[in-house]
Design a protein around this nucleic acid. Structure first.
Lengths: 209, 209
DNA sequence: GTCTATATTCGGATAGAC
DNA sequence: GTCTATCCGAATATAGAC
């Protein structure tokens, strides 16, 4: 019943879960994100298929863990970097780093930003790290002068599109990442410089970047 | 053995295929593109499941037909419109129309531009209408002054991203479509105006818009 | 062309022994 | 926690009568 993070039982369990997730990503790479089979996954981690249910209540729970894990990877990746300097330069770096992050794993990109799995919807808990990411992104935008909701829409569209093209047409490369600087400067050139907070007509729906 | 398009047998067959495709789209809307079942599809068109094999050799053949059908819809949609006027205005119209086309059907957009189905790869025949679309798009870009390969990469990324955001965050609406004009002017402002055909460093790979 | 019947395979999930 | 054994359902696909 102990819930200490230091509990050796819990530690072993967490390690096993981490191992399963890692193998799940590689399996998704091989077969497609929507085509992972729990049988194959179990075999790849040296277990029989029913034993997976000790760690995940269902297949959707596995997807949920992968979703959260992907965003944790993203946040860790961003934590290693520094976006504190000149706002424009920081945004350029941020954009380039994001594109390289997507480029590194097409399936992870698909899980985090495309969300095309038939029945899967992330749970509130799994969703949380994705919100943290959104906060960081909008903060960097604001600091660089992209505040207007229409401008943010344009920014998010361009980022998403560049990431998708990077993943689809130059996986592992940097063909679109190399254009981060141009893209940011282009956006800054047309951004509304108004200090007022009037956000025109659009509704403030959640725009999942 | 007659292969005339006027053959009443062939006409009935083609009509049935068209009906099946139409129902398949609505089924994809309901269950997800990757979750279509041939049983449900057959039932929805008043057939038993094995009878579908009279019209499609396999499930991938159905996907292939949907892929081609979606691009045919897109080409017909574009044929109804006029992009012959001022190059900049034509490109703006083209972009807005594209976004509204995507907005009208998320699953169709997914099939044409996301390509996230586990085992599916379009056949050369099904692929042909998509090439025709790419030709038209690049022609309009060139006419408006977007010729440099880096500029085309940026254009395709922005289009793809706006379409995705439109579909994901405002399906059926026009939140991003309304920004077509700003987006195009923004791109034209940074496009390389050089008349020379030097395309810098990047490789001329096929960039599926 | 459409049907019934069935083959085949594979999926996720559960029961219960150890 | 892991296993064996099994359930149950669903999927695509095929055989052969009508």
């Amino acid at each position: 019943m102990t819930m200490h993070a230091e509990d050796p039982r819990q530690r072993r369990r967490d390690a096993k879960i981490a191992e399963i997730l890692e193998v799940a990503w590689s399996l998704a790479l091989r077969d497609g994100l929507g085509a992972i089979s729990l049988r194959d996954l179990a075999a790849a981690v040296g277990l029989r298929q029913p034993s997976l249910y000790v760690y995940f209540d269902s297949k959707n729970a596995l997807y949920d863990a992968m979703f959260a894990d992907g965003y944790q990877q993203l946040l860790s990746y961003l934590d290693e970097r520094d976006y504190e300097g000149d706002p424009r330069d920081a945004l350029v770096d941020f954009v380039r780093d994001l594109l390289l992050f997507s480029s590194a794993s097409a399936v992870r990109h698909q899980m985090l930003f495309q969300r095309t799995l038939p029945g899967f919807e992330p749970s509130p808990e799994g969703y949380e790290p994705s919100l943290e990411f959104s906060r960081r992104a909008t903060a960097l935008c604001e600091r660089a002068g992209i505040k207007d909701s229409a401008d943010i829409d344009l920014f998010s569209a361009l980022m998403n599109g560049m990431a998708h093209q990077q993943v689809a047409n130059d996986p592992g490369g940097s063909r679109w990442a190399d254009q981060a600087e141009r893209a940011v400067d282009m956006l800054l050139a047309v951004a509304h410089k108004s200090t007022s907070k009037t956000s025109r007509t659009t509704t403030p729906t959640r725009a999942h970047l």
